[in-house]
């Protein structure tokens, strides 16, 4: 089948302004958008730039706007997005070249919530792991699935407006540790999220939940963090 692929192009060394280029190529309904981009890069225009790594929906490198919606190019099939496909970089982050955006503001916000296990209590005497019941694990199971692709954060109008807002991905990762029974730094994380650019910039519009390629209930997780602040306890 014939596929019309319209791609956002911008080379800061050559272009005064961004533009779109359209490629008409042959493809299959089961092709992924990433396959189409690889084809263009390999056979039509080697200067096309985009990030990709595992190409199997795990690394989160190839997040981009496909037909106006944030998706992973490696998980978006032609049969799902149609034969007229527009591919653009994520919005809310500065474009470096073509489909590559500067992820630094995203990761700066991620670092603010201390995304690592903090436990000052000495490990068990037998030197083995700190046990956690399946029930305790289930509480934050959903938010462990985050691959930091930035689909959620860059679908959030509050983040578009102001990248000081920590964004949904940072809150999801804070949730992952705040609700972990082995972690002891919920206070520090909640202090960050209880600030002007913490959870209160979330206006519950659910774009993040819609955008997440891992189907994490992002808005629900943000709501649970708000409730933890409100109730003063973690359950």
């Amino acid at each position: 089948m014939e596929i019309t692929l319209k791609v956002f192009r911008y080379n800061p060394e050559k272009d005064a302004k961004w533009h779109y280029e359209t490629y008409v190529i042959e493809g299959q309904p089961t092709d992924r958008v990433l396959d189409l981009l690889e084809y263009v890069k390999g056979y039509i225009d080697g200067t096309l730039s985009f990030r990709r790594s595992c190409a199997h929906g795990v690394c989160g490198s190839d997040a981009m706007r496909i037909n106006g919606r944030n998706r992973l190019a490696c998980k978006a099939l032609v049969r799902d997005v149609g034969t007229k496909i527009t591919v653009e970089p994520l919005i809310g982050l500065k474009v470096i070249k073509d489909l590559i955006v500067d992820m630094e503001p995203f990761f700066d916000n991620y670092k603010k919530i201390l995304p690592f296990l903090i436990n000052e209590t000495p490990p068990p005497a037998d030197g083995k792991e700190r046990y956690q019941s399946p029930e305790d694990r289930a509480i934050f199971d959903d938010t462990t699935k985050c691959i930091l692709c930035a689909c959620c954060t860059t679908s959030c109008p509050s983040f578009w407006a102001n990248d000081d807002y920590v964004g949904p991905a940072a809150i999801v990762n804070a949730h992952r540790f705040i609700f972990d029974s082995r972690d002891e730094a919920a206070n520090e994380r909640l202090k960050v999220l209880n600030s002007m650019f913490g959870v209160y910039r979330c206006h519950t519009i659910f774009n993040c939940t819609e955008a997440c390629p891992r189907e994490i209930q992002v808005t629900k997780a943000i709501g649970e963090v708000k409730m933890a602040i409100l109730r003063g306890k973690i359950k």
Partner: peptide, 20 residues
């Protein structure tokens, strides 16, 4: 899961207005 030690994130202006 038992409730763990109460977090004390503090009463910020944003929190109070969110509640209001």
């Amino acid at each position: 899961m038992q409730s763990r030690p109460a977090p004390q994130p503090g009463l910020t202006f944003e929190y109070l207005m969110w509640l209001f």
